[in-house]
């Protein structure tokens, strides 16, 4: 069966600076794939090639192939690709409009005019994003009045409203407090059955908790990919092992803060 997304021998350069080097990676139907690695390793860049968001950055050159359901993404109109491959960003990005209009934004732009149909879409999307109960009485309030965690779930709802098949999450909890982070993680687990999810994260515990497979990147390369438990418990590559060893073991998992062993890059969660 063809993977949903696949990168093959992908190289990417920002001007003369290489950002991705010979990346080969596939994303399978209905899985949660986590991409981990130190800052600047290229994980966000890789994520942004899947929906061609890198097109927006001047001077980007790409060699190799990226396919969505077997078809090169560069042969698909970006607008159509991005409807099928949605994305949520590091910081919540509510539009300067009401909660309702935020969620209805995508469907409206793609031609849904019927008021009742829009209401349906908004309610379904907000329910799926576990935000409905908190906002159902203030749908016409400005989105900016929500808390950071609520704003991020609103952004997820807005992405769901255009009915994508894949959701790319670019460090979706790095700007949130632990409580809001836990809610987003729960949400990812709930969405996993219906969507294919690629999660870029700094938070190794998060990757371990929510992903089926995990890819470790370093300096623009994919070092290791495998089932999450396997990679975390028996990493095959010494570089993966070093990176994973460098994280502080959280109280919740091990009860004590573990030793810091020569971290490869920055370690652990914020």
């Amino acid at each position: 069966m063809t993977p949903v997304l696949e990168a093959e021998h992908l190289h990417l350069m920002y001007g003369a600076r290489p950002a991705l080097h010979d990346v080969t990676l596939d994303v399978r139907e209905h899985e949660v794939l986590a991409i981990i690695g130190p800052s600047g390793c290229g994980k966000s860049t890789l994520l942004r090639t899947f929906n061609r968001m890198n097109d927006r950055i001047p001077g980007v050159r790409v060699i190799g192939s990226v396919r969505f359901r077997g078809r090169s993404v560069f042969d698909i109109e970006p607008t159509s690709l991005r409807r099928q491959v949605g994305m949520v960003f590091q910081r919540p990005t509510p539009f300067p409009m009401s909660i309702f209009d935020n969620v209805a934004y995508g469907p409206r732009m793609h031609g849904v005019r019927d008021r009742r149909r829009l209401k349906e879409i908004v309610e379904t999307s907000l329910r799926r994003a576990a935000l409905w109960d908190e906002v159902k009485d203030k749908l016409s309030a400005p989105a900016a009045a929500l808390s950071g965690g609520q704003q991020q779930r609103l952004c997820i709802a807005r992405t769901l409203a255009v009915e994508p098949q894949v959701i790319l999450l670019d460090e979706p909890t790095s700007a949130l407090d632990p409580g809001a982070t836990a809610k987003i993680e729960e949400l990812i687990e709930e969405l996993a059955g219906a969507y294919t999810i690629v999660l870029v994260t700094h938070n190794l515990d998060q990757a371990e908790r929510v992903s089926d497979r995990v890819a470790f990147m370093l300096a623009g390369e994919v070092v290791e990919v495998g089932p999450t438990a396997e990679v975390f418990e028996r990493p095959r590559d010494p570089r993966t092992e070093r990176y994973l060893a460098g994280r502080p073991l959280t109280v919740a998992r091990r009860g004590v803060r573990g030793p810091r062993l020569a971290p490869v890059g920055e370690w652990g969660a914020r």
């Binding site: 927006r56 991005r82 409807r83 990005t93 995508g106 807005r158």
Partner: peptide, 10 residues
Amino acid sequence: TLRDAAYALG
């Protein structure tokens, strides 16, 4: 990021 968010919705 606001522009990105709009573009990402297609």
